[in-house]
Amino acid sequence: MTDAVPHPRLFDIRRIYVEPEAAALPRGRAVLERFPDAERVEVDSHSRIPELYGDETNVARWVRIKTEALVLGVKKSLTARPNGRSADFIAPSTANGCAMACAYCYVPRRKGYSNPVTVFANIDRIGGYLRRHVGRQGVKGEPNQCDPAAWVYDIGENSDCSLDARISDNVRDLVTLFRDLPTAKATFATKHVNRDLLDWDPQGRTRVRFSLMPARDAKLLDIRTSPVAERLAAIDDFVAAGYEVHVNFSPVVVRDGWLDDWAELLDQLDDALGPAAKAQLAAEVIFLTHNDRLHEVNLGWHPKAEQVLWRPEIQQPKRSQTGGWNVRYRTGAKGAYVAALTDLVAARAPYCRVRYAF
């Protein structure tokens, strides 16, 4: 029996779309047992569910679908992709989608007009693949910006692992796996404080990256997430529990007064952290990239967010790999924005090493 406990504000699961193969696996059965009253809808593929994905009429039900629907599937293709920024490798997903609703999230660009959580039930196969992949790398030959000694694997590229841990034990299994791999670390970014993770004894082999932004931005853009103050308050506790804790300053949104608000956030960070957290802290700085298709989706459910996310007068377009248009701050001006914020970090939080900024 899993220890995962659903979050009552974020989950009211009423319908589970399930692949038969997933339902037959131990993890799949455990997830189904957690929601005994939910309607079960058998599907051929977790990624092809017409009433969830690709139906623009779902925009008006964006948050409701996240709250009430869950998908249970099997991860077919297992690969660890090279990365080089947040991690050396992106691990195979044990989940995708999210019950939170950040207005800038890139996952909906891939899944259409809805992205409830999908849990992959073949965790034993995923864990076995990762163990073998780590073994093939051997000892890390030289330091890089990901880590000086360990191969780092991002286990949450397409979901929020802190939230996933409220549905199944997949994330706990991976934290346990990496605890016993002396040449590797797991990592994931999160906007959700799940204190159940404090009991997992990671022994320094999992790096949690708390995503932070000024409260004014978070109130508008970080929908259904833990308040920034709660994330700040959790950092010392996660360090004490054996996690390495970094922060993501992400996404950085340029607007009137943005730099002053970031200065206030950095002061709040300084006040929140004890010596142990400061001694191991590092940050990633990621400025906003937006997308024309997500812009259209947001206009259907959260148009106020687009007033700060969609700024053609200071952004430039670039064709995306999926055929749409991404927009980012204009070359030249963006370099000045990055320098201004990294200089501010150096002045207000000099102990916080910036791993990369773009």
Score class of each variant (00 low, 15 high):
Met1His: 09
Met1Glu: 15
Thr2Asn: 09
Arg14Thr: 08
Arg14Glu: 10
Ile16Thr: 09
Ile16Pro: 02
Val18Arg: 00
Glu21Trp: 02
Pro26Ser: 02
Arg27Leu: 13
Arg27Asp: 12
Arg29Ala: 14
Arg29Leu: 08
Leu32Asn: 03
Leu32Met: 05
Glu39Lys: 09
Asp44Arg: 00
Ser45Trp: 03
Glu51Gly: 00
Gly54His: 12
Gly54Met: 14
Glu56Pro: 09
Ala60Ile: 10
Val63Phe: 06
Lys66Gln: 08
Ser77Thr: 15
Thr79Glu: 15
Thr79Pro: 01
Gly84Thr: 03
Arg85Gln: 08
Arg85Trp: 15
Ile90Tyr: 03
Ala91Glu: 05
Pro92Lys: 00
Ala95Met: 08
Ala95Val: 03
Asn96Lys: 05
Asn96Phe: 12
Cys102Ser: 04
Cys102Glu: 06
Ala103Phe: 04
Tyr106Met: 13
Val107Asn: 12
Arg110Ser: 13
Ser114Met: 04
Asn115Leu: 08
Asn115Ser: 08
Thr118Leu: 01
Val119Ala: 03
Asn122Pro: 10
Ile126Tyr: 12
Gly127Glu: 13
Gly127Val: 11
Gly128Pro: 07
Val134Ser: 09
Val134Trp: 03
Gln137Thr: 13
Val139Phe: 06
Asn144Gln: 10
Gln145Leu: 12
Gln145Trp: 10
Trp151Ser: 05
Asp154Lys: 00
Ile155Trp: 15
Cys161Gln: 07
Ala165Gln: 13
Asn170Thr: 11
Leu174Pro: 15
Leu181Cys: 06
Lys185His: 12
Lys185Arg: 15
Thr190Asp: 01
His192Cys: 06
Asn194Tyr: 05
Asp196Pro: 08
Leu197Ser: 10
Trp200Ile: 13
Thr206Val: 07
Arg207Lys: 10
Met213Lys: 05
Met213Cys: 13
Met213Glu: 14
Ala215Asp: 14
Lys219Val: 13
Leu220Gly: 09
Ile223Gly: 01
Arg224Trp: 10
Ser226Gln: 01
Ala229Val: 11
Arg231Val: 00
Leu232Glu: 04
Ile235Tyr: 03
Ile235Ser: 02
Asp236Glu: 12
Ala240Glu: 10
Tyr243Phe: 07
Asn248His: 14
Val254Asp: 11
Asp256Glu: 13
Gly257Ser: 05
Gly257Leu: 13
Leu259Tyr: 14
Asp261Leu: 10
Leu265Gln: 10
Leu266Ile: 10
Leu266Arg: 00
Gln268Thr: 07
Gly274Pro: 06
Pro275Met: 02
Leu281Asn: 02
Ala283Leu: 08
Thr289Ala: 02
Val297Thr: 11
Asn298Gly: 01
Lys304Asp: 14
Val308His: 06
Arg311Gln: 11
Glu313Phe: 00
Trp325Met: 14
Tyr329Gln: 09
Tyr329Asp: 15
Val338Leu: 07
Ala346Leu: 08
Pro350Cys: 03
Cys352Asp: 09
Arg353Cys: 05
Val354Asn: 06
